[in-house]
Simulated scan of single mutants.
Amino acid sequence: MSSLCVKARISGKVQGVWYRRSTQQKAVSLGVTGHAINLEDGSVEVLMYGGAMQVDALSQWLWQGSEDAQVAKVELEPVNHDASKPLPDAFTTG
């Protein structure tokens, strides 16, 4: 199974609307690890590690997000994981 590491930056109404927690729930259901954190500019960063199909499914879901979210933009960037560091074993929020 091929695995991916992708960083996403989500803009719009995505803070204070349960977006990070919903993303965590979706990631866990897909078996994706990483994190969802608020950024100072009002956007959210999501780092996703997992199988290519699972990361792709979560990437697509980011456009939807939580019920009250209003996603304006999702920017995806592939990340080269440093093999000397362990992969995250959970999906966290911060």
Rank of each mutant, 00 (worst) to 15 (best):
S2P: 15
S2V: 14
S3R: 05
L4K: 05
L4S: 02
L4T: 14
L4Y: 00
C5E: 03
C5F: 08
C5K: 02
C5I: 08
V6D: 03
V6K: 15
V6F: 04
A8T: 05
R9Q: 02
I10R: 01
I10A: 08
S11Y: 02
G12V: 01
G12Q: 05
K13Q: 10
Q15Y: 07
Q15A: 08
Q15F: 06
G16Y: 06
V17N: 03
R20Y: 03
R21C: 03
S22D: 12
T23E: 00
T23G: 05
T23Q: 09
Q24G: 05
Q25P: 00
V28K: 15
V28A: 06
V28W: 11
S29A: 15
L30A: 11
L30H: 04
G31I: 07
V32C: 04
G34A: 10
H35Q: 08
A36M: 02
A36F: 02
I37T: 07
I37L: 13
N38D: 12
N38T: 08
E40H: 12
D41S: 01
D41V: 02
D41A: 13
E45R: 07
E45Q: 14
L47S: 08
M48H: 01
Y49H: 12
G50K: 12
G51N: 06
G51K: 07
G51F: 04
Q54G: 07
V55H: 00
V55T: 09
V55S: 08
D56Y: 00
D56H: 01
A57G: 00
A57P: 00
S59E: 10
S59M: 03
L62T: 15
L62G: 06
W63P: 04
Q64L: 15
G65F: 12
D68K: 11
D68F: 13
D68S: 05
A69C: 12
Q70S: 13
V71L: 06
V71G: 00
E75V: 09
L76A: 01
L76G: 02
E77R: 13
E77M: 13
P78N: 09
P78Q: 11
V79R: 01
V79M: 00
N80K: 05
N80Q: 03
N80V: 10
H81C: 07
H81A: 12
D82F: 07
D82S: 10
S84F: 03
L87E: 03
L87P: 02
L87G: 06
D89C: 04
A90H: 15
A90N: 14
F91L: 15
F91D: 15
F91C: 11
T92I: 07
T93E: 09
T93Q: 14
G94V: 04
